[in-house]
Design a protein around this nucleic acid. Sequence first.
DNA 1: GAGAAAATCATGGAAAAAGGGGAGACGCAA
DNA 2: TTGCGTCTCCCCTTTTTCCATGATTTTCTC
Lengths: 204, 204
Amino acid sequence: MVTKTFIVDDHYMVIEGIRSLLQNEKSIEWMGHAMNASSCLAFLNKQLPDVILMDINLPDISGIDLCKEVKTKYPSVFIIGLSTFNQQSFIQKMMDNGASGYVLKNATQDEITSAIETVMKGKTYLSEEASNTLRKDNGAAIILTRREKEVLELIADGMTNAEIAQKLFISVTTVDTHRKNLLAKFETKNTAALIKIAVSRGYL
Amino acid sequence: MVTKTFIVDDHYMVIEGIRSLLQNEKSIEWMGHAMNASSCLAFLNKQLPDVILMDINLPDISGIDLCKEVKTKYPSVFIIGLSTFNQQSFIQKMMDNGASGYVLKNATQDEITSAIETVMKGKTYLSEEASNTLRKDNGAAIILTRREKEVLELIADGMTNAEIAQKLFISVTTVDTHRKNLLAKFETKNTAALIKIAVSRGYL
DNA sequence: GAGAAAATCATGGAAAAAGGGGAGACGCAA
DNA sequence: TTGCGTCTCCCCTTTTTCCATGATTTTCTC
C-alpha cells in the first residue's frame, strides 16, 4: 500500500530535502507541498493525503493552529509535526491539537519513513529527542489564569507593578500578588528567570 | 570552472535539500557536509572547498564563531551564512566575522546558485530579505562585550548581582555596572524587558 | 446553591535593582 | 603616544521587587 504524503513548510530547502529523501521510498507517494497554511488548505480542498508533514513555524498561521483546523475538517489525515525547535510547549500543543507524531528537522531518512509508517498504523511517533523533552517536565504544564497571562505580558514589556496596576485598573498590591503567583508557578525566584522560562516555553 | 562546495548544518533535511538542489548544477561540485563545527574543522584540515554554506545554529560552537575561526585559518574560503532567522544581529555578526554572503533557508535554487556565483567573484551576496533587514536601521546591531554576555546569561539564569559577583570573582559594583550597560545597550529600563528582548534577538 | 478557584486588596519589612555620579588600570590600534 | 574601549571599582539615593501572612469578594463549576 502506498502512503500519500504532503508537506507544509515555508523553507524551500526542507521541502526539497524531504522530497529527495522520500524519493526512493516505493511505499510513499509524494503529493506535493505548500509553503503556507492557506495554500495547504486550498490543496486539501481538492485532494486528501494520508499523511501531512507540518512545520510549526509558518508565515500566515502557526502550524499549531493549522493542525487543529485540518484535523477538524479532515479527521482521517495523520499529521506529523516538524520543527527545528525541540520545545516542550510546542510539542505538547501540537499533540493536543491532534498531531500523531513529531519529528525534528535534523531527522534522518529512516526516522522520517518510520514516523510515516508508525502514524499510518494509527500509532504515535515521537522522535527520541522530542519524547525526551516531553518526559523531562512530565506534564507539568504550567496553567496560567487570564489575569496572570496579562500581568506576565506587561511585566515582559518592562512595566512596573505600579504601571501595570494603572493599566489594568487594579491595585498595586494585586499586581504584586499575581506576580508572586507567577514566580511560584514557574518556580523561579526573580523576574529575569521568570521571563526567560516563559519565553522559552512559549508563554510570551 | 567548478566551484567546490561544502555545507555545515545540523539539520539533515537541509543538507539533503541543498544537495538535491545543487545536484544538477554542473558548475558546482558537492564536497560533502558536516553536522557540527568540529567535524567541519576536521574536514578542512584535509580538503579545502571554495565555498562553505554555514548554518548559524550549530550544536557545538555557533556558526558565527566558526566563521571567524575558518576565515582566520583559511582566508581563501568564501563563507555563506545560512539561517532560518532573518535577524539583523546575526547577519551583522556573520558578516563582521568574514562571511561573504547570507541566505535564508527558504531560498530557492536560483538564489543559492547565484549566491555561490556571486561570492566566488569576490562580491557580497545578501538575500533580499536579509539585506532589507540590514537596511532597517531600527535594530542597530547591539554589540556586547565578552563580560556583558557572561553577565547577561547569569542574570537570565536568575542570579542576583551578588551571586554573579561571587561566580565571576569580581565586585558586586562591577556586576552592577555591567548590568547598567546592558540596560543602556538594549534601551530597556528593567530586567524583564532586557531578558525578553535579549531572548528574542538571539542573545540568549 | 455549595465549594473551589480566581481576583481582589492590605501591612510591613528585607532584599535587590535602577539611576546618577566618578575614576583608575589595561591593552590595542591608529 | 594618545586615544578608545573594556573591565574594574566605589559612592549615594530612590525605586522596585520579593517575602510572609492574611482576608474579602467575585466568578466558575459541579
